[in-house]
């Protein structure tokens, strides 16, 4: 039963910087398993180069060069650095000239190792998630995985695009693997849909931080929580009121009627943000001195820590709003 083996076993580490033509920043991809050696001459620019000794055929001794089976750079989470760089290029003008995003304390985000980014969530179609992901990937050159409600996955096209541009369904197992095993940055909004669905009259009032699941995830993964306070997303697409019956009929979590809808009409309205100035403040990382990879953690400790982080973000928001003189100019 001597069968010819032309395929090698699992790939080696895949940590080379990705080169995207026309871009200077390089982003480290998550370890992509399943990539076989690439011959240097046929390798597309965005795939890793071959290492010496890796392109040997284990078969008959003929030096057959293996073709890399992968045709895209979609990683095991569905994120594609190629798609992500296209999205970044498209989003850059909006980030720079529309929202004119300003960061405070960006150096507090760890340059290596896993960390759980926790932010407040606002705007009918929240503008904070892409802004945070874009900013960190541009400035730090690290990918950010945005964890969101799994509802997204059920929407055709949107779900796929969301996944290719770094979205991951918020599941504790996914978070643990991302943070603990792969030491990536993950972004969560503990308010969930309660954040973006709140009306303008409730702006900058943080909702309940879920059941503190994010603290438990950070404890289990042994990573710090980095709280982020975002100002401006609330005004970029304010919710005037909600139509629960329409939401129920459409099967979506909420159906908002926004000021943008009234200002820009029904066609442009759902996609056009107001040019509110967005400011993001990175607060001091919170570390928990507990053993990682435990099955359970003290519920009271988890709730306390969640509440402490929530109130720190709330205080930071109030502080930033006190300093803010204009919604549009900051």
């Amino acid at each position: 039963m001597a069968r010819e083996k032309t395929e090698p076993t699992a790939a080696g580490p895949n940590a080379e910087a990705i080169e995207v033509s026309g871009r200077t920043t390089s982003v480290q991809p998550a370890p992509v398993t399943g990539v076989s050696p690439v011959p240097a001459d046929t390798a597309p620019a965005r795939l890793r180069p071959v290492r010496p000794g890796e392109d040997q055929d284990h078969g008959e001794g003929t030096q057959r060069v293996l073709r890399d089976p992968r045709r895209s750079d979609v990683d095991e989470w569905g994120r594609s650095e190629h798609m992500r760089s296209i999205a970044r290029r498209a989003y850059a003008p909006l980030y720079r000239h529309w929202f004119r995003v300003e960061w405070q304390g960006l150096e507090k985000i760890p340059a290596t190792g896993g960390a759980l980014l926790v932010a407040n969530h606002a705007g009918a179609i929240p503008s904070d998630a892409p802004v945070i992901m874009h900013g960190i990937e541009e400035e730090l050159g690290r990918p950010v995985y945005g964890m969101a409600d799994y509802f997204f996955r059920t929407v055709p096209v949107v779900g796929t695009l969301w996944s290719r541009t770094g979205g991951v369904p918020a599941h504790p197992d996914n978070a643990y693997r991302l943070l603990h095993d792969q030491e990536q940055l993950a972004l969560v909004f503990p308010e969930g849909v309660k954040g973006p669905s709140k009306t303008y009259s409730d702006r900058y009032r943080l909702r309940r931080f879920g059941r503190g699941g994010f603290v438990e995830i950070a404890m289990r993964s042994g990573v710090p929580v980095v709280p982020l306070a975002v100002v401006g997303a609330e005004e970029s697409m304010p919710v005037l009121f909600r139509l629960p019956s329409v939401a129920k009929a459409l099967g979506v979590p909420y159906f908002p009627v926004t000021a943008n809808l009234l200002a820009f009409g029904p066609i442009l309205g759902p996609f056009t943000y107001f040019p509110a100035k967005i400011k993001i403040r990175v607060l001091d990382p919170v570390r928990f001195d507990v053993l990682d990879s435990q099955e359970r953690y003290s519920k009271s400790r988890v709730m306390d820590e969640a509440e402490r982080i929530r109130s720190r973000i709330q205080d930071a928001l109030h502080d930033m709003l006190r300093e803010r003189r204009s919604v549009w100019f900051g």
Binding site: K5, T6, E7, T9, G34
Partner: peptide, 25 residues
């Protein structure tokens, strides 16, 4: 669908093919 295969690997089993390699072959 994705399944974690680390348990069998911990038992010492070594795969010859990755998922992509399987499709290629």
């Amino acid at each position: 669908r994705g399944v974690d295969t680390s348990r069998l690997c911990e038992q010492g089993f070594e795969y010859r093919y990755t998922s992509a390699g399987t499709v290629e072959s």
